[in-house]
Design a protein around this nucleic acid. Sequence first.
DNA 1: CAACCGCCGGGAAAATTTCACGATCTTGCT
DNA 2: AGCAAGATCGTGAAATTTTCCCGGCGGTTG
Lengths: 220, 220
Amino acid sequence: MNGTDCAIMLVDDHAVVREGYRSVLQKQPGLRVVAEACDGAEAYRLFKSAKPDLVIMDLSMPGIGGIEAVRRIRQWDKAAKILVFTMHQNAGFAVQAIRAGARGYVTKTSPPETLVRAVMDVLAGKIAISPDIDHELALSRLSGESSAADVLTAREFEVLRLLLAERSTDEIAETLHVSPKTVANLHSLIKDKLGVGSDIELVRLALRQGLLTQVDLGEA
Amino acid sequence: MNGTDCAIMLVDDHAVVREGYRSVLQKQPGLRVVAEACDGAEAYRLFKSAKPDLVIMDLSMPGIGGIEAVRRIRQWDKAAKILVFTMHQNAGFAVQAIRAGARGYVTKTSPPETLVRAVMDVLAGKIAISPDIDHELALSRLSGESSAADVLTAREFEVLRLLLAERSTDEIAETLHVSPKTVANLHSLIKDKLGVGSDIELVRLALRQGLLTQVDLGEA
DNA sequence: CAACCGCCGGGAAAATTTCACGATCTTGCT
DNA sequence: AGCAAGATCGTGAAATTTTCCCGGCGGTTG
């Protein structure tokens, strides 16, 4: 599927950005944009009918986000080739994306050639990571910054997610059917494990690691 | 400057997005892209030499952000026409942008025609706000959601900024040369005025209102 | 089986948040 | 000028929360 025409699907909620993709990609012979979606749900639906050779996927989108869309598409077609193209210059997001089944991760700050190169690499079966993310990943390894998901147990992670999403300790206790005391204990333990002193730092860490996206906060 | 050629400068840190702008704009006769910048500082520098008729400006950029860039450009040229084009579908950001001197605010989710229309309107001397933001603004007025900056005094706002940026109460007290006790009192008062119960909600509110941008958190 | 670990919570000490109260200073109004 | 309002800063004490230490329960592993 490399030698001749390759069908590509674009997924991004910003029309102007899709216009940009198209402008960059159509300069490459052998690439055709056959479908466009503006959120994760539409991406999944269109993928099944269009069966593109490659998906270029944004992460931050309304409703079903990019990570979840990658997961669903890969579940439907284990061989799907998905290249994540996002503004998030963040090792945490990259790890999540690759784990979800993406074949590449390129940031939007990258020059167009990097995108084209990544498209070609992924089509050729390779994994494509843009240089800035390579660097981020290297740094996070060197500094031993264990991504929250690793150091926390499943339960702790669940509590953290609720702490960031819900309002009070008592509400979380009710959701989990445990005593408020337990939630408070977990809350404290989480801050300890993550090495933060205050809730504010906790939120900042979560944002940095991509546990929370800025759009999640709007619908509070 | 409307009838014939209009010189436009693009400011966005994502190359592919600039490509998208160009692709959309060049379909309009009479518009020429004469300069491109990828951060606020470069935008200010280039504006002074290129003197474009219109600037299309993104908000979230590394270093000097879009709001500050708008402010500086308007300070240098009171007649500068700047159209903010951003992903933030957020009344708070829009208010900040217009106060800083922008002549328009359009979100990236808008269809290309909306952008083109806004460009024309701003060039014609009008103020252009995209419909979704109009709606957001209306909602925020109706719900009486007073933007943090309004209900807080200057001092309180400063403390809030430090709370979100620095680490401990004591560090903030030292920076402000007041007793830690005062900072704690202010901290409490701020949460009261903003109607939030926990620090986590405080951060979420701040994010929603654009007091803190996601990029600010990276360099923590 | 014994040892360990995640999970759940009680109790008490420690720390923090909240509240009530002045004192001082600026600002705006008459 | 005189006065009222409110912003700022601080104190101290009460109320609440956070933190720490403890034990019990169930599952897994050596």
